[in-house]
Amino acid sequence: MSDRKIRVATCSLAGCFGCHMSLLDIDERLFGLLELVEFNRTPLTDIKHCGPCDVGLVEGGVCNAENVHVLKEFRKNCKILVAVGACAITGGLPAMRNNIDLWDCFQEVYQYEGGLEGGKVPNDPELPLPFDKVHPIYEVVKIDYFLPGCPPPADAFWRLLTDLLNGREPKLDYEMLHYD
């Protein structure tokens, strides 16, 4: 392995940051990890854009246009891109809206619910425009590895990262592989 630290970026698209919380659950192993790894864009560093990285960990599915921009930026900059968690891999809970008509979703949120000014659907260009359906990220860009779970266990994160850092093909033990 080279002297340079391995650069890692992470993000959450249509996810709940639960996968990030689980990553933090590797606890004291974080200290050791930081000897080997430097974090680029992540919610932890507050870096806004992903620079050239060795590994990108993407949590969450693709539910709107902004997700696509972020995902493509990660794909462009990360040598290895990993789909992390049920939402990135299957669409997850956000995909439960996939058979509800988008019109109905908007009406329910902006028109039937009280409190919003005029009950109008917002049209501000700064708001990400949603897709008809939520998709897993592998349907939008090529993904190199998958880390299932809702969230993936901390040990699974640890295994994935240490395998990658040591140039091994990542392989989870049976207990580390689950979809819930």
Partner: peptide
């Protein structure tokens, strides 16, 4: 590790 194919979301 993943469902691999594109989802139908029927």
């Amino acid at each position: 590790m993943s469902p691999h194919y594109n989802h139908f979301y029927p």
